[in-house]
Simulated scan of single mutants.
Amino acid sequence: MKSLKKAAAVAAAAVLCVSMSVGVFASSPTDPEIPSVWGGNGTDKDGNKVTAMQTEELSKEVEEILKDEEQVKEILKEAGYEVTEDQNAVVLGAGNIELVDGQWDGMEMPEGGVDLELRLETGSWDWDTNTYVENETLKDLKDGDTVYVLHQKADGTWEVLEGTAVVENIYGYTYYSVKAHFDSLSPVAIVKIMSNGEVVVLDKEEKPVGTIKPGEKDPVGTIQPEKAEGKGDSKVVKTSSATTKKSPKTGN
């Protein structure tokens, strides 16, 4: 299994390098519906360079979730984002991402997490027609757009992170990637929200989770007081930028 994972990582690295010159990602013919996130590069909190690669295929359960727009929207809603019926949640790419060392072996997440720029698949090869098909989900994505990173953690729960799209032209080819901070890695999916043909930013509601008296301290240190207008108490809001939920398919 370890040798298979290393072989997959090496193959992914080769594809990533080739893509920089020819702009082509070859994807599996068995699942052409979800574009790949092959991996990318970044740094840890100390500025050390790190490399991330897709080393395993997505599970069937994760595939089913990501192919169901309503389940994708539900994950976003559970994270506090306001998603309307007329908005579309479009999966730009997904993959099982892992940090790898110079020998393409998996490595532990550094303390403090990593800032990664993950490369999105610009197209795939249709083995039935023997033609190259562009990734249409990237249409209308512009440099600096806000996208959403759906990350399934080891315990099966989902968190939603916000990322920034990077669109650049290199030697006549357009490349797409997403910058985001990660404290752990596993299945990730990059999602854009479309409304009236444009990429939009979702509103996020702050949900009070309790009240404390002014001057009191939160006993567990996970929330902070925010002064409520016209009242002697303070609202308490979560300070974490990521919200977790159970799998919408299994409920576990």
Rank of each mutant, 00 (worst) to 15 (best):
V114Y: 07
L141N: 01
G40V: 03
S124Y: 05
M109H: 10
V201D: 13
D115T: 15
V91C: 00
K73G: 05
G172Y: 02
G42S: 08
P110Y: 05
A154S: 15
T122V: 13
Q87R: 13
D31G: 01
A9V: 14
S59T: 15
A242L: 10
I212Y: 01
P225L: 09
V167W: 03
T146P: 00
G106R: 11
K49M: 09
I193L: 14
N88T: 15
K153F: 12
L120G: 07
V22T: 09
I97S: 00
D126M: 11
D218L: 06
W127E: 15
G93V: 01
Y132P: 10
E134W: 01
D126G: 08
W38Q: 03
V188N: 04
L118G: 06
Q103K: 14
L141C: 07
S241A: 14
V37M: 06
D218M: 02
M107Q: 14
W104R: 08
E121H: 03
V133I: 15
N41D: 08
I170T: 12
A26K: 12
S184C: 11
P110C: 07
K235Q: 12
E134V: 11
V166T: 04
D31M: 01
G210V: 05
V62G: 06
G95V: 05
G156V: 10
E205F: 05
K192S: 12
K231L: 09
E56S: 15
T55L: 02
A9R: 07
D203Q: 15
K227V: 08
D126H: 12
K67H: 13
